[in-house]
């Protein structure tokens, strides 16, 4: 690609150096450099000094022990498994609830659509922490919501199974529920964007050719919305897998997720190399879905 005329003009007057340089240097100093330090620290040795790590020692320069512990110690493997399972289940439920909502948004009148879209986005502008907190109020033992669930449970099951309250707080169920609640807009918006672009005449053509509504959905709508599904899925899965706030407030402390492990290794255990190794492992885990995503994107671009 050649330089644009805009750029050549700016180069000529020496303005482009400033325009490129300021944000570039900022990100290099405050993002890339700190990140590279963490990557380097993941092969350092934990020492009782301040700062608590050093290079060298018995293994000259590189110490692979933190990484081998990530791969062999059950604590880390269980935490990774909990994170991936919670994030994946939350993603599936977001999809199951978000897809019909996004499809519904494309089917209502323009006035309703604008109002409903604003209602989807509005919770996103309110505090994330307070949205988690709202569910703490609902899930607690004495809340009206828990009472409602308990009563309907006791009504439906035999007497011997009756419960005083539904144990929701401090479970993985609570984590998934709150994740679905907080991340659902991230699923709905890309799905809506991809569904809105679809050509309605394709649906009509399929129906004219005798497809039943569910066949139209399965054969026409769904395959065309896969980019939206992938984008929404990524936007839910990636932050959910690294989530720290939700599991620490409503999760089961005996089954920590990986974010909590990183925080504890870093803070309480003061083992910075171990925290860094777990962090790098988490990033590698996230790079895989990201690569799948960019693969899909590149494919979609080529099709265009």
């Amino acid at each position: 690609m050649s330089q644009s005329r805009f750029q050549r003009w700016f180069d000529l007057k020496g303005w482009s150096a400033l325009l490129i340089g300021a944000p570039y240097i900022w990100l290099l100093v405050w993002f890339l450099l700190p990140f590279l330090i963490v990557v380097a620290m993941s092969v350092a040795t934990n020492t009782p000094t301040a700062p608590p790590f050093s290079f060298g020692g018995e293994h000259p320069w590189v110490n692979w022990e933190p990484f081998s512990r990530v791969l062999t110690d059950g604590l880390y493997l269980r935490a990774f498994l909990t994170s991936v399972v919670n994030a994946f289940v939350a993603m599936i439920f977001c999809l199951l609830l978000g897809y019909p909502m996004a499809l519904g948004l494309t089917r209502v009148s323009t006035n309703w659509r604008n109002i409903l879209l604003m209602l989807v986005i509005l919770p996103f502008w309110t505090s994330f922490l307070l949205r988690v907190y709202a569910w703490m109020g609902l899930m607690g033992k004495n809340s009206w919501f828990n009472g409602l669930l308990t009563d309907s449970w006791n009504f439906l099951v035999p007497m011997s199974w009756a419960m005083k309250s539904v144990p929701m707080m401090h479970t993985n169920f609570a984590v998934v529920l709150v994740m679905v609640y907080t991340y659902l807009p991230f699923m709905i918006l890309p799905l809506y964007a991809s569904l809105e672009r679809l050509d309605p005449t394709l649906d009509e053509a399929a129906m004219d050719l005798g497809s039943r509504p569910y066949q139209v959905f399965w054969d026409v709508t769904l395959p065309q919305s896969i980019p939206g599904i992938v984008a929404g899925g990524m936007l839910v899965f990636i932050p959910a897998a690294g989530e720290l706030v939700i599991p620490s407030l409503v999760g089961n402390a005996a089954q920590p997720m990986i974010g909590k492990i990183i925080q504890d290794e870093f803070g309480q255990a003061r083992d910075w190399p171990m925290a860094s190794a777990v962090a790098v492992a988490l990033l590698i885990l996230m790079v895989i879905p990201t690569m799948i995503y960019s693969h899909y994107q590149a494919k979609a671009e080529r099709l265009k």
């Binding site: 490129i20 944000p23 570039y24 990100l27 290099l28 405050w30 993002f31 890339l32 450099l33 700190p34 990140f35 330090i37 963490v38 620290m41 700062p51 990636i238 932050p239 897998a241 690294g242 720290l244 974010g259 990183i262 925080q263 870093f266 910075w272 925290a275 860094s276 962090a279 988490l282 990033l283 996230m286 990201t290």
Partner: peptide
């Protein structure tokens, strides 16, 4: 590199961003 740098913070887990800045 630049176009990577403007995307990376979007997908970086907050815990990692927080720790790397604190260490820095």
């Amino acid at each position: 590199l630049f176009s990577g740098l403007v995307v990376a913070p979007l997908i970086m887990p907050e815990v990692i961003t927080g720790i790397s800045m604190l260490v820095f």
